[in-house]
């Protein structure tokens, strides 16, 4: 069964509030300059409100990214509903010097529906809650998602999940899960439980 700790969840809520404040100020600044435009404006989101929200989030991630985080703007501009975020392992943690890539996919129901977030690329962090196929067991990505969360909050949450890791290892059920799971982690019935890893 996929594993999850409440530890990861708690750090994530802490990250949430700071991320949100940052997102708001940055978004407001970006909006004030009047430069929030989208070349990809007419993609899947038929609802302009949510397009605007994604654009605001993109701007704020550009202006005030969490430490070690950069968003691939060209990619996001090509397709507003699919982002690639580069992440560096924080200094002083087990992942110092490592580089990772996160893929975000937003459904037409975003932000009421959580984005689909997985690690992609060569280097998938070795972590007790990250499967070797890039799936992440983190409750805010499924049942604890709230539309007040953001890409920024998710990034912060994942950073803190990595930073608090004491031992690099895969989840105990990694090989079974990777063989049987859907490509979309949101289709997994994650079994969240308290776990003392």
């Amino acid at each position: 069964m996929p594993m999850f700790t409440k530890l990861a969840h708690k750090t994530s809520t802490a990250a949430k509030s700071s991320g949100q404040t940052a997102a708001k100020t940055a978004a407001a600044a970006a909006a004030a300059k009047g430069n929030v435009t989208s070349p990809a404006g007419k993609h899947f989101l038929d609802n302009t409100r949510w397009q605007k929200r994604l654009q605001k989030e993109l701007m704020s991630l550009l202006k005030e990214p969490p430490p070690g985080v950069t968003v691939d703007v060209d990619q996001a501009h090509t397709k507003l509903t699919e982002w690639v975020v580069h992440m560096e392992g924080a200094a002083g943690t087990l992942y110092e010097g490592e580089k990772f890539q996160l893929q975000f996919k937003f459904s037409p129901k975003y932000p009421f529906d959580s984005p689909e977030v997985i690690f992609v690329g060569e280097n998938i962090p070795i972590h007790p809650h990250i499967y070797s196929n890039g799936h992440i067991c983190l409750s805010i990505l499924t049942e604890d998602w709230s539309p007040a969360l953001s890409v920024q909050a998710i990034c912060l949450s994942i950073i803190s999940m990595l930073s608090s890791c004491k031992e690099k290892k895969r989840p105990p059920d990694n090989s079974y899960y990777v063989k049987t799971c859907s490509a979309n982690p949101k289709k997994t019935k994650w079994w969240y439980h308290d776990d003392t890893v």
């Binding site: 909006a31 409100r49 539309p147």
Partner: peptide, 16 residues
């Protein structure tokens, strides 16, 4: 775009 920077206190927590 619309609002002034000081309006961020009055932004909706969902659509921002």
């Amino acid at each position: 775009e619309d609002e002034a920077p000081d309006n961020s206190n009055f932004e909706c927590n969902i659509c921002l």
